[in-house]
Design a protein around this nucleic acid. Structure first.
Length: 958
RNA sequence: GCCCCCGUAGACCAACCGGCAGAGUCAAUGGAUUCAAAAUCCAUACAGUGUGGGUUCGAAUCCCACCGGGGGCACCA
């Protein structure tokens, strides 16, 4: 800080008068001292089961761990961390064993990109960033158990990420038992003949390679050639969840293409039903549950089989509207559908509509093409379209395959098309098209001149196209069944039963959720514990873990022009030849293998870090069972409780990705008996964001927000030039970043914490306002001044314990209120109540009695722990207050002696009357009616009605 | 287009099961302190709850419609 000499002298003179005034300097000294002491004494180390202190009721609080970015924390980041810290400190003072730790989600793109640019190893960057984050967080006085901190990039940590991967790889999903089981049990069932192979051949007749392929096809982690999101601009493939609604990469905003590529997948779809159903057992915000349900996308319908004329195969479709089957006038297969090649005939049927047979490069009909050529041309065009093209252009395109299918309800032959409005990834990748009841089919039918048959009668006066609502079925009968006149629900039931009887279909539940693409072509991620021989992947034994990342010269994956759809991913690890080619003895002698060169996605570590906090240094288990049980077990006193972390706090942006993946891993671990809890996070809380104003000048460039002043007319100027204001994120490029370090310097961490907690309840987003922070500082200063002599630093508290009832009532009302507020995470109202109490003590004038001062300090401690510890010690206590008993309200002082009742006449307050608190309803009524203004209004007439709300008010109706 | 959340003094926010619109903070205004300023302290004022209807003795709170803001989903058969 630079000030001229004159100011400094005066500053010193001031401090000379009151060296113990609570200001930034004193705050900083106090804060450092207590942070050191907490660390030295291990104050916040939470005992595990069996250790002293573990007999207290446990609470596991968790923050979504941060990615340690190069720019450090701004004031928005720690909002949730402070919130959980306040709750943790409160719970510790009410007798709980609180586990609260902080780790780092440290794999990720920025460190890798920085490495590509500068050649600095990502580990170097990452470790420096983690150290900086830790220093910033320490300064805030967060009561973390520092022994439990982990980073996903620690070899000791990712060794266990790899171990869990192997567990998942080594499992299959038993659909009957609805749980994952070890893959060896599947193998045993095949060997014993209790389960037969798909083609019926006995296990003994399969070759070793065939056996491996069969078993691999059941694994929960598997390699497959499937349509994936290929992003040439990033040089990597992405999960569905990482692609935005407009078909671009969430990171970098590059176009994404659907490509068939060989990639690792996680079979999350087999858990779709449990992931959806168990949401009901979670204490989560409705919005997040809704988003997950939406993403999982459960829908009930039927599978229906259509024969294909002249082909040995049939087409299966999924439909949610089997009741409209009589209106199916054509079918569509997704362009990638494997059956396409099998059904395409050598020539078009006679009289094929020329619009159906595809077009040449100039878009004109090309009647000379064979069906195979037309289909191939269309497939090629569809594959070249990016997701974005598909989104933007919803005009229906497609081509006739030349094949005809048979509608099972009426034997009608209907044309089969290939069109990209049908997606391979949903249902069976094929649909029956019912233009009368589906707008997409209507659009396609209109474009291609296909017939439209309504099978649900639209309401009188219907002028729309496809009718998707409820109504009586029409045109829906054959010799055996008639749906006509039935409503949609009954018609569905009727036709599904008929299809089942005929063997042409059955009812089925379908999910939108797709398997999780689990490999990335990146350097800075967990290597797979997998090697390859000529037949496929082979898991490494536990003893070979960890598989460490090799040092390489070039960290970048091969990237391409963003729209180069036909390119191939090339992972950086594939260039580390010495690492890739290994000779290992995996049980049948030393042989050569190639290592898997993809790495895991960033989500892997965050799928289980909360388990590692519990047992961070264990080298035998990822988390010892008795420790997991202690912190995570289901609570038998709560019916349906799935167990898990007691409170998980973070932003809503992880509603689907992280929270869905973590739930999936946890359920696998539960099925395999590795954890006792069924869900990772029993209660979830979304904190709001701290947002900020940013200002742009006339040219549209951002100016430093700190230097902008508000003019009297409500406008804003910077260097006297008008600027315009926008509201949103805090960021370097917006020039509006405020850091917690700055706030600690200017006001102290306690003031900063209190400010963040005072501006609103935890769940609300709000603007940052540096100008307002001083209010929190003034409050702490007033508390300090009430208890401490600013000249000597000695306690001013009086030991005379005769306290007037008015003060006692306020004290106990405050105690009672603060308990409720802390538990509800309404720290803003808790702070307001403490301010109110302190204001009362200030106005009261006389020295504050110890019996009021001490509870005040204890109640303040969760919010402003350093100043509270300091006051507590200056009041004569040697030990930390972290485990002191939080004040308990005395019921006697919660009841008032008299109550003032407002008296309403016809709902408007006209007067008030004070009566003894124990007065009954009749007494209150009598007192109210006798009150002179009311008596005057009534003027002798009897009121029509008198409503007495005990403790609240009286309403006189005339 | 569909779904979810939110609209209260100039700003951020309180108000429990429908019962006096105000706990707290900033800013504003007046005053004390000061040679002056900063800092500090004391005091004051400020909205009838986005709009329009409905239910009720009584609505910020419950219901309906609309307006505004934020978020999610969107060719998912």
């Amino acid at each position: 800080m630079s000030t001229d000499t004159g100011t400094e002298t005066r500053e010193q003179a001031r401090i000379g008068d009151t060296p113990f005034r609570y200001g930034a300097e004193l705050a900083e000294e106090i804060e450092r001292r207590w942070q050191d002491r907490w660390e030295r004494e291990g104050t916040f180390q939470a005992p595990n089961p069996g250790e002293p202190g573990s007999e207290r009721a446990k609470v596991y609080l968790l923050d979504m761990f941060p990615y340690p970015s190069g720019s450090g924390l701004h004031v928005g980041h720690p909002l949730g961390f402070i919130g959980t810290d306040v709750l943790g400190r409160y719970l510790r003072m009410t007798g709980h064993n609180v586990l609260h730790a902080m780790g780092f989600d440290a794999f990720g793109l920025p460190a890798e990109q920085y490495a590509v640019q500068t050649g600095t190893h990502p580990r170097t960057t990452t470790e420096a960033n983690v150290a900086r984050y830790k220093a910033q967080l320490r300064r805030l006085g967060l009561a973390h158990d520092e022994r439990r901190s982990v980073a996903t990039t620690d070899v000791d940590f990712y060794r266990w990420t790899q171990w869990i991967f192997l567990k998942i790889y080594g499992s299959f999903y038993d659909a009957q038992q609805r749980r994952a089981r070890p893959i060896e049990e599947l193998e045993a069932e095949y060997a014993a003949g209790t389960r037969s192979s798909p083609d019926g051949r006995p296990w003994g007749e399969l070759s070793e390679v065939e056996r491996r392929a069969l078993i691999d096809s059941f694994r929960l982690a598997y390699v497959t050639e499937a349509p994936v999101n290929w992003c040439p601009g990033l040089g990597t493939v992405l999960a569905n969840e990482e692609v935005t609604a407009d078909g671009r990469s969430e990171r970098g905003n590059f176009p994404v293409f659907r490509r068939n590529l060989k990639q690792w997948m996680m079979r999350i779809t087999v858990y779709a039903d449990r992931l959806a159903a168990d949401l009901d057992r979670l204490d989560w915000p409705d919005s997040v549950k809704a988003m997950q349900r939406n993403w999982i996308g459960r829908s009930e319908g039927a599978r229906v089989r259509f024969d294909v004329v002249g082909a040995p195969v049939g087409i299966e479709v999924f439909t949610t509207r089997p009741d409209t089957l009589f209106g199916a006038t054509y079918m569509v297969l997704a362009p990638e559908h494997p059956l396409v090649d099998q059904i395409v005939p050598g020539a078009w049927p006679l009289d094929t509509d020329p619009r159906w047979t595809g077009s040449d490069r100039s878009g004109r009909p090309a009647p000379d093409q064979t069906p195979a050529e037309a289909v191939a041309a269309y497939r090629a065009t569809a594959a070249r379209k990016s997701e974005l093209d598909r989104q933007e252009n919803k005009d229906k395109t497609g081509v006739f395959t030349g094949a005809l299918a048979v509608n099972p309800v009426n034997g009608q032959a209907i044309p089969v098309f290939v069109a990209d409005y049908v997606l391979m990834g949903y249902g069976t990748g094929a649909i029956m098209a019912v233009p009368g009841q589906d707008q997409r089919d209507w659009d396609f039918a209109t474009a291609f001149g296909l017939p439209i048959i309504r099978t649900v009668a639209p309401p009188e006066g219907w002028e729309g196209e496809a009718f998707t609502g409820d109504g009586p079925a029409i045109n829906s009968h054959n010799d055996e069944i008639s749906l006509d006149g039935l409503g949609v629900i009954e018609a569905k039931r009727g036709i599904t039963a008929w299809l089942a009887e005929k063997g042409a279909g059955e009812s089925v539940v379908q999910y939108k959720l797709r398997d999780w693409l689990f490999s990335r072509q990146r350097y800075w991620g967990e290597p797979f514990p997998i090697v390859w021989d000529e037949h496929g992947p082979i898991p490494l034994p536990d003893g070979q873990l960890p598989v460490e990342l090799p040092d390489i010269a070039d960290y970048a994956p091969k990237t391409y022009a963003p729209d180069a759809a036909d390119t191939e991913p090339e992972p950086p690890l594939s260039r580390a030849a010495d690492w890739v080619n290994v000779k290992l003895d995996l049980g049948d002698g030393v042989r050569s293998y190639r290592r898997e060169t993809n790495t895991m996605p960033q989500w892997a570590g965050s799928c289980w870090y909360y388990l590692r906090y519990l047992d961070p240094h264990d080298d035998k288990y990822f988390c010892a069972p008795e420790i997991e049980q202690y912190w995570m077990a289901r609570d038998p006193s709560r019916p349906g409780d799935p167990g898990g972390v007691d409170l998980y706090v973070g932003g809503v942006e992880h509603a689907v990705l992280h929270l869905l993946y973590a739930r999936f891993w946890h359920k696998v671990l539960y099925d395999l008996g590795e954890v006792s809890s069924e869900e990772p996070f029993r209660r979830l809380f979304n904190q709001g964001y701290i947002q900020a104003y940013a200002y742009t000048d006339a040219r549209g460039s951002y100016v430093p927000a700190e230097e902008v002043v508000e003019s009297p007319d409500g406008g804003f100027t910077w260097n006297d030039a008008p600027v315009s204001r926008e509201y949103g994120k805090m960021g370097k490029s917006l020039r509006n970043v405020v850091t917690p370090d700055e706030m600690c310097e200017r006001y102290g961490a306690d003031t900063f914490r209190l400010y963040e907690m005072s501006t609103g309840p935890m769940e609300v987003s709000r603007p940052w306002s540096t100008r307002d922070v001083v209010g929190s500082q003034r409050f702490l200063q007033r508390v300090w001044r009430n208890l401490i002599d600013e000249t000597t630093g000695a306690s001013r508290v009086s030991d005379d314990d005769r306290v007037e009832p008015q003060t006692l009532r306020l004290l106990h009302r405050t105690i009672a209120g603060v308990h409720t507020d802390f538990l509800a995470l309404h720290y803003n109202t808790a702070a307001a109540k403490l301010i109110e109490l302190n204001n009362h003590l200030t106005k009261r004038g006389a020295a504050v009695p110890r019996s009021v001062a001490e509870p005040l300090v204890l109640m303040l401690a969760p919010l402003a722990p350093h100043i509270a510890e300091e006051l507590w010690s200056r009041l004569g206590h040697d030990a930390t207050l972290a485990y002191a008993q939080f004040p308990i309200a005395d019921e006697r002082w919660l009841v008032a002696e008299t109550v003032e009742y407002p008296i309403q006449v016809n709902g408007k307050v006209r007067s008030r009357v004070t009566v003894p608190a124990n007065a009954d309803g009749d007494a209150v009524r009598v007192a109210a009616l006798a009150e002179e203004k009311i008596a005057a209004v009534l003027d002798g007439r009897p009121p029509r009605k008198v409503i007495v709300v005990p403790g609240r008010l009286v309403n006189v109706v005339v």
